[in-house]
Simulated scan of single mutants.
Amino acid sequence: MAKTRVLISGASVAGPALAHFLQRVGYDVTVVERAPAVRDSGYAVDFRGPAFDVLDEMGILDEVRGLDTGMRGVVLVDGTGAETGRLPAEVFAGELEVPKRELTRILHRITADDVEYVFGDSISTLTPRDSGFAVEFEGGGPREFDLVIGADGLYSKVRQLAFGPHTDTVRHLGMSGAGFSAPNHLGLDRVGVLQQAEGAAVYLFSAGDPDRLTVSLSFATASAALDRRSRGEQEAAVRDAFGRHGWEVPRLLDAMAEADDFYFASAGQVHLDSWSRGRVALVGDAGYCAAPTSGMGTSQALIGARVLAGQLADSGGDHAAAFAAYEARLRPYVTENQAKGREAALVFGGGAMPVS
């Protein structure tokens, strides 16, 4: 009997995790990723609650624990840099925090021998067939797959092709931010510094590399339109939002222009009546992003991947039943996390969460 052929779009966290579980139960899995290689971007990801069970089931829990950034907490400062309070590490770092690039490397390593990876490419069209899809890629001709899974983030190409435009599914939470690295001139060591003002926040931390300062400059925005603008336009918006701030901000704005890892993103959530349509399903941020303010993105991705793979394995080949069971089991958890994301966005009043 031929193996079920599954195409997964996205090789960050949800995609490789799902690939790992599916290939273990006999699926023929291909992962396509727009980036030319395993992504080396992103700052830190954290794990909470049931996500540890998933890491343990994958056999990587001890390895991931060994990469703990060891964050010791966050210092709150006023507009002059004077300390006004402290927050425990768990607020931003969860129960365990590791560099995102290390997690993606581990997930790729444990799947590379049994999963086909196609880097530097993306899905361009999905054409339904009687028992699957003819998939056209931007870099090549069509291939046939039985199932297609979108694990490609907030602005998922799979979701756009199968469910409709992003404007119908992505809800902006009123904040955007720039992230980048700078020299650690403050000498921070496994500690964060947070300065909040009305409608804006500066968050700095150093973990892992004592010479590197990770910077997040978040501010209130009416829409996510800046996500689709050029870096120059994004930097201009950041300067406009922070141009009147004192303390270390002028120096940070100068460093932003020199950063080779500049990243800009808006806080948003994905809301869908259903996470599947026919032979297409979504996992992680592509289907139910809870926003960075929730602190649950990585945990949701891992748990969603395990639940989806488990339902497919138990379905006896009935993908529709598997997709329905996956959603029924996971949606209450996602609904709770999305509520946390919205509440945190309101509390932070326009930005205190690092983009990643």
Results as ranks from 00 to 15, higher is better:
202 V>M: 07
251 R>V: 04
144 E>G: 04
201 A>C: 13
326 Y>S: 09
344 A>P: 01
185 H>N: 11
312 L>N: 05
277 R>M: 08
202 V>I: 15
265 A>I: 15
204 L>H: 03
28 D>W: 05
65 R>L: 01
273 D>Q: 14
229 R>S: 12
195 Q>N: 10
41 S>H: 13
110 I>D: 05
77 V>D: 04
94 G>W: 14
168 D>S: 14
166 H>F: 05
13 V>Q: 05
330 L>K: 12
5 R>M: 10
311 Q>M: 08
323 F>E: 09
45 V>H: 05
147 L>S: 02
230 S>E: 04
190 R>L: 06
56 D>W: 04
196 Q>F: 13
166 H>I: 00
180 F>T: 06
57 E>M: 08
286 A>K: 01
90 E>K: 15
233 E>Q: 15
68 D>Q: 01
127 T>S: 09
269 Q>K: 07
183 P>F: 10
331 R>N: 05
217 L>M: 10
108 H>E: 04
11 A>S: 12
155 Y>Q: 05
197 A>M: 13
321 A>T: 09
194 L>T: 02
144 E>Q: 12
65 R>C: 13
18 L>H: 01
243 G>M: 11
33 E>L: 04
175 M>H: 12
13 V>M: 03
99 P>I: 09
281 A>R: 05
135 V>E: 01
151 A>G: 03
191 V>I: 15
263 Y>E: 11
334 V>R: 09
207 A>D: 04
337 N>P: 12
88 P>L: 10
107 L>H: 08
225 A>R: 09
152 D>R: 03
271 H>Q: 14
40 D>W: 07
144 E>Y: 03
45 V>Q: 04
221 T>D: 00
289 C>K: 00
307 V>K: 02
114 D>A: 13
30 T>R: 01
101 R>F: 15
294 S>T: 00
41 S>R: 13
96 L>W: 09
193 V>F: 07
244 R>M: 11
131 S>E: 14
262 F>I: 04
27 Y>W: 07
102 E>R: 15
349 G>V: 02
266 S>M: 08
334 V>W: 09
74 V>R: 06
340 K>R: 14
42 G>C: 04
27 Y>D: 00
207 A>K: 00
268 G>T: 02
69 T>H: 06
287 G>E: 00
40 D>F: 06
219 F>A: 08
64 V>L: 01
72 R>H: 09
209 D>N: 12
330 L>Y: 12
242 F>P: 06
320 A>M: 13
124 S>D: 12
162 A>F: 02
354 P>I: 10
63 E>L: 14
